[in-house]
Design a protein around this nucleic acid. Sequence first.
DNA 1: ATGCCCAATTAATCATACCTTTTGGCCTCG
DNA 2: CGAGGCCAAAAGGTATGATTAATTGGGCAT
Lengths: 246, 246
Amino acid sequence: MGRWATVGTKDQISAGLHAGVLDAFGALITSGAFPPGHVLRIEQLEDRFGVSRSVIREAIRVLESMGLVTSRRRVGVTIAPRTAWNLFDPRVIRWRLDGDDRDELLSSLGHLRRGVEPVAAGLAARHATPEQCGMLTGAVMQMAVHGRSGDLPAYLAADIAFHRTLLEASGNEMLGALTDLVAEVLAGRTHHHLMPAHPEPAAIRRHAEVAQAVQAGDPAAAERAMRDIVEEANRAILAAQSPSDP
Amino acid sequence: MGRWATVGTKDQISAGLHAGVLDAFGALITSGAFPPGHVLRIEQLEDRFGVSRSVIREAIRVLESMGLVTSRRRVGVTIAPRTAWNLFDPRVIRWRLDGDDRDELLSSLGHLRRGVEPVAAGLAARHATPEQCGMLTGAVMQMAVHGRSGDLPAYLAADIAFHRTLLEASGNEMLGALTDLVAEVLAGRTHHHLMPAHPEPAAIRRHAEVAQAVQAGDPAAAERAMRDIVEEANRAILAAQSPSDP
DNA sequence: ATGCCCAATTAATCATACCTTTTGGCCTCG
DNA sequence: CGAGGCCAAAAGGTATGATTAATTGGGCAT
C-alpha cells in the first residue's frame, strides 16, 4: 500500500488517469487534509498516487486554475488559503458537498438562491417562451400530484424541473448557469429529511402563482411570489438547523 | 508567420508557456473563433503555438475543466457548446469582458448583482464586525469627497471598496466570492462612460444609508437601501444601452 | 444486399529524459 | 568583519518517445 487512494473507480479510469488523481487530490484538499501553505513535491505525489509526472502535472494544473494550489519552481505545490479558492467551480462545490462542510455550504447556497431566484422570476416574466410557460405549469401539476401522493423523489424531480426551467427562462446566461447549484440545494433539503412527508399545499400554490405571473408577463408579481417561496424554504432550513435561533 | 499568436507577453512567459497558450487559446474560443463541435488535433495546436505536446495538453486540460472543450481519444479536441461553459470561472469572464460580448455580459452580471447585493447587505447587517462598519463609512466618505471633486477613478475605487467590504461582511463565502464580478461591473460602467462627471448625490446618500443600516444592525433597511442603489444603477445602464448602439 | 465483426490506422494518453530557473550557501573583496 | 556576487544543487518546466484505446473501413457470413 502506501497510497492515499487507489485511483480506482472504473469510470474514472476510462475517463483518464489524470481525472482520477484530480478527483482524489481535490477532495483531499477541500476536505482540509492539508493546512494552507503546506508544500508538497511532485515526486511525493507521483509515489503516493502511483502515476507519473505528466499525470500529476495535469491534475495540478487544473487544481491551480481552481485556486486550490499554487505551483512555483524550486518550491513545490503549495496549498492555497480558502479565500483563493474558486468557490463557484462545479467540482469544488461537488467535493465540498461530499465532504464535511456540506451543511455550511448548503446554507451559503440557500442565501445565494434567495437573492438570485426572485430576479430570475422577474426576468422570466419578460422573456419566457410559451413552451417554457407550459413546462412551468406542467412542473407545478407534477408537484401537486406527487405531493398529494407523498412520493417525495418524484416531487423533488418536479421541483427541480420547475426551478431549472425558470432560471433558463430568465434569458440571462449567468442566472441559467446557477441551475445546478439550485438543484443541489433542493436535493440537499430532501436528503436531509427537511421535507414533511406531504409537502405543504401553500408551497405548491406559491409555485402556481409564479407560473401564472410568468405566463401573464407580470414581473413584479413573479418576483414577489418567488421571494415568498425561497424565503419560506430558507426559514424552514434555518429552523431545522438551529431550533433556538430566530 | 503561420502562427495564430506569438505566445508573447513577457509576464506570460515568465508565468510558464502553458499559461500563455491557455490565455491565447481560451480567448480564441470564447470569442467564437471556432464553431461548437469543431475539432482540432493536438498536433495542429503544437505547430500553431510553437510548443510541445505537454504544454498543449496542460492548457487543454484546464480548458476542459472550464467546459470550453472536450478531449476524446481518436477524435481530438472538440469545441464545446456555450451551454457547457463554466460561465462563473474568472478567466472565462475575463476573456469575454476583453472580447466582443462585453456589453451583453455586463448586462447579465448587472442582473445577477441586482439579486445578490441586497441579500448581502441584509446579511452584513447581522454579521458585520465594527471594523468592517468603519471601512464602509470610510468608503462612503471617500465617495463623497471624490464625487464632489469630480475625480472619477478615485470615486470608482471607493465605490468598489464599499461593495467589496459589504460582500465580505455578509459572512457568506459564496457571496464574498462574487466581489470580483461586482468590481468588474462597476469598473465597466465607468469605462463605458456611463457615469456623469459628478456622480449623483442621491447615489452617495443611498450608500450612506446602507452603511448606517448595517452599523445599526437593521437587515431590512440595509436590504431595501441596497436594492435602491443597484436598481437605479441598472436602470441607468439599460437607458444608456437601448437608445444608441453602434 | 445488408449487417456484423475484426483489424489496421490514428490520435490522445502515459512515461521518461533533459532543460531552465531559483535559492541558499560559500567565498572573495572591500 | 561585513556585504555582495557567484556557483551548485534541487525542483519544477519542457520535449519527445512509447502505449493504449477508439474509430473506421473492409470483408465475410447470413
